[in-house]
């Protein structure tokens, strides 16, 4: 109860600082919403652009996932003490954890600087981001594999990458689920990356937003939502099959 009360008081203080408590703001929100709603329709003129942008976003995400999976498949064993000497695995893990704390948008900015603006930068950023996430997922998956299976494979003489691949195969369903999760995640992230110039729908949305052309913004948002929902449905269907 005391926690609730003190949070509430803190909230009041911050509302004052941010000017959220201002009653004028709320009436303004109302009129803006009315304006926005009156503009709300699909602008067919930009539909072609919207479809292209969504297609670009999809390609960026798929590239990010496939490149990320490949990298993570090869690199995750380096982080696993089952495959590597424990000290080396711990060192690699620490490095990976450190790199993982960098958000996708920062990678996008980085690659926009290196490769220039456009979908290339977004795609490369997503490869790095996806791989660094999947490395964590994959080494945790390797760790969770039944010890007796690991033991008998080891006695059989397996080590290194082949050992990791046998363990991956054992955890196939789990791995596919993780990859699909990353795909869903990438499609969402790829829509944002355009804001920093890394290609995809985000770029157009920011553009039309600055022109206050809400119907064009709406068209892009709807196209994006359609993409996200489609990907989620596909991913759900694949998960049902495996």
């Amino acid at each position: 109860m005391r926690i609730l009360l003190s949070t509430f008081i803190t909230l009041l203080i911050f509302s004052y600082l941010l000017d959220v408590a201002n009653p004028l703001l709320w009436t303004k929100l109302g009129t803006n919403a009315a304006l926005f709603l009156s503009e709300l329709r699909i602008e067919w003129g930009v539909m072609n652009d919207a479809l292209f942008a969504v297609y670009e976003t999809l390609v960026i995400s798929l590239f990010g996932v496939s490149g990320g999976v490949l990298l993570a498949y090869l690199l995750a064993p380096l982080a696993s003490p089952l495959i590597m000497p424990p000290a080396a695995a711990a060192a690699f893990r620490t490095l990976a954890n450190f790199v993982r704390s960098v958000p996708a948008v920062v990678w996008a900015i980085f690659f926009v600087i290196l490769a220039g603006p456009g979908p290339r930068a977004g795609a490369l950023a997503l490869v790095i981001y996806t791989s660094i996430y999947l490395i964590k997922f994959f080494y945790e998956t390797l760790e969770a594999v039944d010890r007796e299976l690991y033991n008998s494979l080891k006695v059989m003489g397996l080590s290194g990458l082949p050992l990791a691949f046998a363990l991956y195969t054992h955890a196939k369903r789990h791995i596919v689920t993780q990859i699909l999760f990353m795909l869903e995640y990438n499609v969402r992230t790829a829509t944002i990356l355009g804001l920093v110039g890394a290609g995809g729908v985000g770029y157009y949305i920011a553009h039309y937003l600055s022109l206050l052309n809400y119907s064009a913004v709406m068209t892009f948002v709807i196209a994006t939502l359609a993409l996200v929902i489609t990907i989620d449905l596909v991913s759900y269907a694949v998960r049902r099959i495996i």
Binding site: L149, S152, L158, H170
Partner: peptide, 24 residues
């Protein structure tokens, strides 16, 4: 070494599991 729980890769075929022995 055949442990008590056999340690086969269950989601794969019998053939895959046998061939596995030559992976090293």
């Amino acid at each position: 070494y055949i442990p008590q729980n056999l340690a086969l890769i269950e989601s794969e075929t019998a053939l895959y599991n046998v061939l596995l022995a030559r992976a090293p």
